[in-house]
Each structure stands twice: as structure tokens, then as C-alpha cells.
Simulated scan of single mutants.
Amino acid sequence: MDIKFDPNNVVIKLCMMGINLEDSGNIEDATTMFNKAWHEATDDYERFIAAYHFARQQKSITDKLEWMETSLRCALNINDENVKSAFSTLYLNIAKCYEELCDSNNASRNYELSNSYKGAPSDKGPFYHGTKAELQVGDLLTAGGNSNYKPELKMNHIYFTANANGAGLAAALAKGEGRERVYRIEPTGEFENDPNVTDKKFPGNLTRSYRSQEPLRIIGEETEWTKLTTTERHKWRENLAKNKGEIIN
């Protein structure tokens, strides 16, 4: 099974609206939005995401535990690399609930399960990198370039993803006048989850975004991905200009 994180998915859109409301301090409306996401969810992937966000808003620890366990149950039903990265976070949240309920046995068991899912990603790809640069098969992409998001920042890592549409977004936002290109790549060394997206708005690394200090080798060019419309591109650039968050380099 290969599920792609889709920012245009109705449930993910509702959750994003809820997160924005939460960020502006409007917790009540955020909770309503997450509840709506749960009721509109049609499969385990959507239910896992909606339940996780709804769980975070619960005032009662027993309710929070119940919704976190619901989220985990839905996630476990999905045999997908996309979701596996969230297990550590889900078990950790469940462990903390049990700890608050003074159930040390269940707390310990869930802390152990959380730790067992930590470590290097096991994603086998295929992997993609988006850019406007014209590259050839066999070329190596290396760290040290300027950030697309903060041009004054020299990047210590080279970034890639297992989501061709995610690489397409990076290509659309990349500097330069060339055409948008998405290349199929293979990492030449170890890589890690991109900390700029992992466990930020969603549990784990649902966008399957990674980074490496070792070069990435170009193995081909991808032609099939969903390109942004002019309006979408403008909106992304606007959001990036507003974003004052720190980049974890």
C-alpha cells in the first residue's frame, strides 16, 4: 500500500484549518474543526490523522488516551511507510497519558514501544529531488547550497522526499528561471527524517521528507507529478514570506 500525503485531501485541509485556529489561540473552534475532520474521514489514514489532532485537544486525560489509542489503532491498520514514522509519537503520547493516570505498567510498555520505532528511517523510496537546475544521470547533488526559504542560509544537508508531488513543490519554489524539474535520486549515504517537518503539524514524517549530509545521485528524471497552478504558487510564496519560523539546519 502506498498512500501519499495530500494537502488537498478534505480531512487534511480541515486539520490544517484547525491547527491554524489553534495557533491563533482559538482552541474551541480548532476542536470543532478536528471533530468535523473525524466525522468526514472515510478511511483509516484519514481517521488516524483526525483522531490524533482531536486527542490533543481533550481536557480529560482518559478522553485524550481514548482518542490517541483510536489514532494508533487506525494507523496500525495501514501497512504503509508513510504512517510508520508516526508510531513512535503515538506510543509516546499514550505512555504520557498512562503516566498521568498513575498506570506505570502501561506507561513503561508504551515508552518501550515508542523507543523501538525510533532510529534511522527504513524507507526504501523511490526518492525524488525538485529543482530548476538542469542535471544529468550520474550527477551528484551535495549539501552547501542556499536555502530556498531563507536565501542567506547555507544548508548543511541536501533534502529529498519519497513524494514526487512534494519534490514538485520544492521545484516550483526553487530559485532560478529554468523549468521545474523533478529528478529520481538515490542517497549515497545515511539519511534522516527532515526535522523541519517531522512531528511538527502532523505526527511523524507523513510527507516522507528526508535529508542527508552525503551526496544524492541522479538516476533519472520524473515527468509525472501534480504541478501547482499560478494561484497555488503565489499562495505558497506568500505563506513562506510570512513564515518567521526557524529552519533546523
Rank of each mutant, 00 (worst) to 15 (best):
M1S: 12
D2V: 03
K4I: 10
F5D: 00
N8K: 12
V10H: 09
I12C: 02
K13T: 11
G18D: 06
G18K: 07
L21S: 13
E22K: 14
S24H: 10
S24A: 08
N26E: 10
D29A: 15
A30E: 10
T31R: 14
T31D: 13
M33S: 14
F34Y: 15
F34E: 09
H39G: 11
H39M: 11
E40M: 10
T42D: 04
D44H: 13
Y45V: 00
Y45S: 05
Y45W: 10
E46D: 06
R47Q: 09
F48D: 01
I49V: 11
A51E: 08
Y52M: 05
H53T: 00
F54G: 05
Q57E: 08
Q57G: 07
S60R: 08
I61R: 11
T62V: 05
T62R: 04
K64G: 03
K64H: 02
L65G: 01
W67L: 10
E69V: 00
A75D: 03
A75Y: 01
N79T: 06
E81S: 14
N82W: 04
N82C: 15
N82D: 08
K84D: 03
S85Q: 04
S85W: 07
F87E: 01
F87A: 02
E99P: 15
E99S: 13
E99I: 04
E100T: 02
L101E: 05
L101Y: 08
S104W: 15
N105L: 12
N106S: 07
N106E: 07
A107H: 04
A107R: 02
S108W: 13
Y111E: 10
Y111R: 10
E112K: 12
S114H: 08
S114D: 01
K118G: 02
K118L: 12
A120C: 12
A120E: 15
P121G: 10
S122C: 13
K124W: 00
P126R: 09
P126Q: 05
P126F: 09
P126D: 05
Y128W: 02
H129P: 10
T131F: 00
K132Y: 00
A133E: 09
E134K: 15
Q136M: 13
G138W: 03
L140D: 09
A143Y: 06
G144N: 08
N146K: 15
S147L: 02
N148C: 07
P151Q: 08
L153A: 02
K154P: 05
H157T: 05
H157G: 04
H157D: 07
H157Q: 13
I158K: 08
Y159I: 07
T161I: 04
T161R: 05
A164R: 13
N165E: 11
L169T: 08
L169S: 05
A171I: 01
A174N: 06
K175C: 01
E180M: 15
R181D: 01
Y183P: 00
I185M: 05
F191P: 08
N193R: 10
N193Q: 10
P195E: 11
N196I: 04
T198D: 06
N205A: 06
Y210M: 03
S212M: 06
P215L: 03
P215M: 04
R217S: 02
R217G: 01
I218F: 01
T223W: 02
E224F: 02
E224H: 08
E224D: 09
T226V: 07
T229C: 06
E232D: 13
W236V: 07
E238K: 13
K242N: 10
K242D: 06
K242R: 14
N243M: 08
K244F: 03
K244W: 05
G245Y: 12
I247S: 03
I248Q: 12
I248F: 11
